[in-house]
């Protein structure tokens, strides 16, 4: 199994391949990063729902309920990812039915180094944070190896 399975029990709506929802943040209009992630996740045996760029927080929450993913991957490269991410994860975790859904974030998240916001984003509710400067390998390893998302801190 390629993905953390923590939320499986609460999302029994589909069987077969793990379902991953890929999304950008509200202010980020980039899409090639999202397409790359979709291909990577598909390659690793997942079904991917890619909801694209400039996703408002309430739309992300609605799409999580509609698709019932096993995991949510947020990607942002416009430098506002830390700000947008903290706000969206706070909103998402406030929803009781989504409080345990595995959600990770990655990309070019700020204009300064990752140590500034990695822990803060984890504290706000993300299960893992991946900074662009570390490349894609930590994320790939996370998908391959992590049995429990909460045990990992990719930016440490």
């Amino acid at each position: 199994m390629a993905l953390p399975s923590t939320a499986k029990g609460s999302h029994p709506a589909h069987a077969g391949k793990p379902r991953v929802l890929v999304s950008s943040t509200s202010s980020d209009s980039h899409t090639w990063n999202l397409v790359f992630l979709q291909l990577l996740l598909e390659e690793m045996g997942n079904d991917v729902v890619n909801i694209g760029s400039c996703v408002p927080d309430d739309l992300l929450i609605a799409e999580c309920r509609r698709h019932r993913p096993d995991m949510v991957v947020i990607s942002s490269v416009n430098g506002h990812g830390a700000l947008d991410g903290e706000r969206l994860i706070t909103a998402l975790r406030a929803e009781p039915d989504l409080s345990r859904l595995p959600v990770v974030i990655g990309g070019k998240l700020g204009t300064r180094g990752s140590s500034v916001f990695g822990q803060r984003l984890m504290d706000a509710g993300f299960d893992a944070v991946f900074e662009d400067s570390a490349g894609i390998e930590p994320f790939r390893s996370y998908l391959e190896l992590a049995p429990h998302a909460v045990e990992l801190e990719a930016t440490a």
């Binding site: 990063n33 790359f36 490269v77 990655g106 990309g107 662009d132 490349g135």
Partner: peptide, 8 residues
């Protein structure tokens, strides 16, 4: 030269 474009 900068690194390759952002991936994630």
């Amino acid at each position: 030269l900068t690194s390759s474009p952002s991936k994630v």
